[in-house]
Simulated assay, not measured.
Amino acid sequence: MINRRSLPPPPPPEELGSWPDDAARLADRSTALVELSRRGLGIVRLVLLWLLGAVAVLGWACVGLAVQSFGEVGFDPVSGVVALILAAVLLVPAAIALGFWLHRGHVVRRRLEAWAALDPAPVSEAQSLAHRRSVLWLLPSVALCLAGVGLVGAALAEASSRTAKVSSTTYLVGLGATVLLTGVLGLAQSFSQRRWSAQLRHTVPVRRGGGAHR
């Protein structure tokens, strides 16, 4: 049986004979697909993406403060170095955490494909769940993309001004790029899951030997 507290593992190789009959195999397949659909577009996963974006925004604010300390309000190397250290402390872990976030999504997708390939039977519950949650991801992600484009545009407009400050322009560019990237990642996840769920309406190619893809 599938443990709902952890990420469902890939299906075992067919030669192990892990299920007593087809009914048990289909029941585990349905449970795994529903749970993986829930994890792939989970609220916690979406909030985590936003939190990483917020941390990156704080990091870019520190970069702007460093630029300001090194030239715009008088040379203050101590404040500038401290701001750069804070920026690194915020931006580097956020980038690493984002890598793990992307890897987790890749693992979920591979396991969805592996479980779906066990049998051509559709799983309407998983399809419906993925559809609802993809909409939940889609709407705020579109808003973030629009906000990111607007911020980047504002930064470019400010950069062309004679009175533009390098620190504020740097911050606006970092803020806009971060917000835009957060929205794009949310959109990509939403469309990917929605496309996969649509495939459940049709016959899924059945896996032939060799076990699950890892």
Rank of each mutant, 00 (worst) to 15 (best):
L180C: 04
T178Y: 00
E158N: 14
P11D: 06
A143R: 02
E72H: 05
P120W: 02
S141Y: 04
V78D: 14
V173T: 12
S168L: 13
V82K: 08
V47K: 13
M1A: 08
Q199A: 11
S69P: 04
L98S: 02
G64R: 07
V47H: 08
V67N: 03
G40D: 13
V63M: 07
L26D: 11
F191I: 09
C62A: 12
A164V: 06
L52F: 09
G74C: 03
G153F: 04
L144M: 14
P11V: 01
S161Q: 14
G210A: 13
V149C: 05
A24I: 01
A126S: 01
V166L: 11
L175F: 12
S190E: 10
V89W: 01
G17Y: 03
L52I: 05
R194P: 01
S128V: 02
L175G: 07
A97T: 08
A164N: 07
L48C: 06
A54S: 11
L144P: 08
A126N: 00
A23Y: 09
G148W: 00
P77D: 07
V204Q: 14
V166F: 10
G153W: 00
R104A: 14
K165D: 12
A88N: 01
G99R: 05
P13G: 03
H131R: 10
A198N: 13
I96D: 13
G53S: 05
V82A: 12
M1C: 10
L98H: 10
W115P: 11
V92L: 10
D22N: 11
E113C: 10
V166Q: 14
C62L: 04
P93E: 06
G42N: 01
L41E: 09
V67P: 03
P9E: 14
A114R: 05
I43N: 14
R110K: 14
L46W: 15
Q199M: 02
V166M: 12
D22M: 04
A143S: 02
